[in-house]
Amino acid sequence: MSLLPNIEFAPIRTMAAKEFRDRVRSRWVLAVAIVFAIFAMAIAYFGAAQQGAIGFRGLAYTIASLVSLVIYLIPLIALMLGFDAIVGERERGSLDLLLSMPITRSELLLGKFLGLAAALALPTLGGFGLVGGMIAWQGGWNALFHYGGFIFSTLLLGLAFLSIAVLISVLAKDRTRASGTAIAAWFFLVLIYDLLLLGALVATGGETGGETGAALFPVLLLLNPADVYRLLNIFSLEEVKTIYGLATVFPDSLANPALLGGVMTAWIVVPLGVAAWRFNKA
């Protein structure tokens, strides 16, 4: 039962379809879609109220506002969606039954991931897509293209955290520990990581870290999917670049969408790969 040879797609598809149907049936997908749609609508329309105006104010600011919301929300939702993928089946007693089917452990894990990914992608596309129509109407096709990029990067962010959640789910002994670890991962990657980085940056006076310090900070930003997501979105928008302090230490040479996309893809593939490896060893 090695990782890749003799892989069969039918059991993966069956597993994914069941997982997706289970989430749709529980109204989870609908609830998340509504939350996304309401937030996106509110931010697009009222986001500029602080500046004394309401109404659509321009794409860059809308996306920047959405990014600062999504960066908290999507990781949390993805972690909550995936943390019990395996440990939940184990606690329910159904994992042995699934594993007694003609399916390998890797296929089972991949099927679970794909089903959950679909359950996450549908409300993301649906909820934020609704606002896409408004943006195309107000801002034209170019705006829609940028907004499409925002949705795509949001999907990548969700999948990266889903992959981390599935890894937690494979490693955790029980559901309680899995949920605790998922929350801790969210706190660390979404809230604490940037604070630590900023603190270190301020403490070293930014430049005084010398050449190694200057080279190190951008790499450290790439080690966190939430930061990669932020970089992906702000570097496509000149007007909002300066809003983010950390972006100023990020060299343009690394702000290449292909590189950032590649790092994000690695954040999806690597945790899932480690999860499959550990799951196969169990």
């Binding site: 039918a10 059991p11 069956t14 597993m15 069941k18 149907r21 289970d22 049936r25 529980s26 329910r92 007693g93 159904s94 042995d96 039954l97 699934l98 089917m101 003609p102 399916i103």
Partner: peptide
């Protein structure tokens, strides 16, 4: 298996169809 618990949101027939598909 002992004390198996299935998926609460799926119906009996859906559960059985899922395992039938898994098993081929």
């Amino acid at each position: 298996p002992e004390n198996v618990v299935f998926y609460d949101n799926l119906t009996g027939i859906e559960t059985l169809r899922f395992f039938a598909r898994m098993k081929g």
